[in-house]
Design a protein around this nucleic acid. Structure first.
Lengths: 196, 196
DNA sequence: AAAGAAAACTAATAAACGTTAGTTTTGCAT
DNA sequence: ATGCAAAACTAACGTTTATTAGTTTTCTTT
């Protein structure tokens, strides 16, 4: 049936994309060759093209898949009825969890997007800017409601985003500390600092 | 005289390295060709090799130059006599300032180091791990002295490092807020959080 | 002015790259 | 079993890459 076949194909395409993500993360987009990817998949390089359109397509399917997950989650948070602090904690928590769960893909979306081709590049950056603006709006609301200290909302947001996006540092030495502890620790520090 | 000549050569080499950093930052190490770099310098590609050994050499001179600046500063902080909180604030402040001052090179050291060749790669990573451990030691001391909340020192350090390393986000939209504000805002948030 | 070194140039090389074309194998539906 | 589409293969392509060799120009020193 056409349906099953297309499902299978989508699945195979996804497998390739996930293996591509692990290579793109480890070596970077440009330093990853289609022959290496093919090796990892267990196939000749040219055979990949039965399932994908191009190397670039792999990159942008990874980037937009992740970008969309963040966008969808943000919409949920915006429609929830917690206060601003609760919303920000929710977002931080989501960032940490998705980073730990889909590390390769999130890493690629965070670090290899610059190799996207137009118009995907502009598209991606617009989506990101919009995401940041909506986070800033949450902070501004929190300040208005006296839940958040009266600082510059962009600084607060960029600090949070930098911290959670840089979580790759963490991945290197995650042996000693549980995800649970990590999540709690980061939220605590970003919300209340480290001073006693 | 030999001395002047070698000084001139070092200068020219540095100029090339700085221009290389701006390209490596914008396009990534692998996506930057020696022909592009030569264009930027105003010379043919092969002429670059009168001043540098190889493309790889450019990358590792950038990475280690920056790594050494951080190492030297850390040693100064360790030998200073402030308390742990003061030391950490000092380090955060240094990260922000050097990021703003030598943005391209710091960015490259933070994001393109994976393209270093051995043994420079191992060397670089060792230096980084050592840097992180020494920061963790400062936090541990602060906890012992009841200056810092009783959390996991690695989480505190990784959160701080992620936040300051991710400062590139900032660079995109630095129009509205001064460096002074940025530095104060980040230090405030990382030390005391954003909750009122 | 002459000499010598430093740094530019042109030209070429060998390797690696993404991708296409054409062919053969595989696996499911009749 | 037969037929057909999906997906594998081999081979090759045109580019682009970093780098080297050899030559000429430019600059500095005597």
């Amino acid at each position: 049936m056409a349906k099953i076949k297309s499902t299978n194909k989508a699945t195979k395409k996804e497998v390739i994309a996930i293996k591509a993500a692990s290579l793109f993360k480890a070596k970077g987009f440009n330093a990853t060759s289609m022959r290496e990817l093919a090796d990892l998949v267990g196939v000749e390089a040219s055979s990949l093209y039965n399932h994908i359109g191009s190397k670039s397509e792999l990159l942008h399917s990874i980037c937009f898949k992740i970008a969309n997950e963040f966008t969808v989650h943000l919409a949920q948070v915006e429609n929830s009825n917690g206060n601003s602090v609760k919303k920000l904690q929710d977002i931080i928590s989501f960032h940490i969890r998705i980073m730990l769960k889909k590390f390769d893909e999130v890493f690629v979306a965070n670090h290899e997007w610059k190799h996207l081709q137009e118009p995907y590049l502009s598209n991606f950056l617009n989506q990101r800017r919009s995401y940041e603006k909506r986070l800033i709006a949450i902070v501004s609301e929190g300040i208005k409601n006296k839940e958040i200290i009266n600082g510059e909302p962009p600084i607060i947001i960029f600090t949070i985003l930098s911290a959670v996006r840089g979580l790759e540092l963490w991945h290197r030495s995650k042996k000693n500390i549980s995800e649970q502890n990590l999540e709690e620790g980061m939220i605590t520090q970003l919300t209340t600092g480290f001073i006693k």
